[in-house]
Amino acid sequence: MTGTAEAVRTHLPGLGLLVGGAVAATLVAGAVPGLQPLVVAVAIGVGVGNTVGVPEVAEPGVGVDKLFLETGIVLLGAAVAVEEFLTAGPTVLALVVGVVGGGLLFAEVAARGLFRIGSPTSSLLAAGASICGVSAVVAIGRVLDARGADITFAAATILLFDAVTLVAFPLAGEWLGLTGRQFGVWAGVSMFSTGPVAAAGFAYSPEAGQWATVTKLARNSLLGGVAVAYSLAYAARSAADPGVRRLWAEFPKFLLGFLVVAVVANTGLLSPAALASIGRVSDALFALAFVGLGLSIRIDDMRAVGAAPVGAVLVHLLAVSAVALAAVRWLL
């Protein structure tokens, strides 16, 4: 029992910080018409993280933000109209597979050919930009037995783009006059890490948030396949075993929970009141996660990122988002 009490005590300060930020975001958004609480949550996190910083005692609790994000996504399954997603599913899936496959190859060529970035950094950047941001950088780094410095360098580059696209995409979507579904799918295939994709989607509209998250989940589920492909391509230096074990190891397990919840909710087992209550729990978890996302965005760290990786990832982002934009406008 003392172990449980100790674990709670260790996490309490950070959880308090996340809860304080989420409550403040809700109050501010409630007082200012048109302001989305989740956007304010990220802004508060960025503000606190880059001024007073996160006290050491709060770090374990703040680190739970990704668990809140993934649990919020599992519960988002209850808000998903399976029929609607199944109708658009094949189109969105084809788009995801095409963009990830084409994007990976394009990013490798751009990084090596245009910016003279060697491997494995080129592959880490390509994986981070094409699949699921920092978690893809870390997973592919593990597969390729990359040095810690290479992984940190690539992850910092991806984080820089996460912060910029989090603001730029919703603005661009408004300017382009995209529908919620178009924006969600566009952000879901073009942006990098899962948290910023969901945050940008919900900043645009609740419908866009759902589409962005579902599209991003489809993209994340390809990580195992890409990890296997990279370990085969780099076979001579690979430290990891390719095959079904690796596919499963890199598969985001919370995606299964999202699917189960979506099926349960769509079979009519849950009352409208229960669905609304689950939606509120999901919103609360997203608010906590987005305060943590904001706290993790460190402007000082981003200044240290080099020009070549920024150039390579920027070229990739511009090309992929332009192709994806044309596709969503044409297909959805």
Binding site: K66, E70, T71, V260
Partner: peptide, 16 residues
């Protein structure tokens, strides 16, 4: 962490 999120999410739905 993916299993943790899955367990928490399903726990919330089961409680409802």
């Amino acid at each position: 962490r993916g299993w943790q999120a899955l367990a928490l999410g399903l726990g919330v739905v089961a409680a409802h």
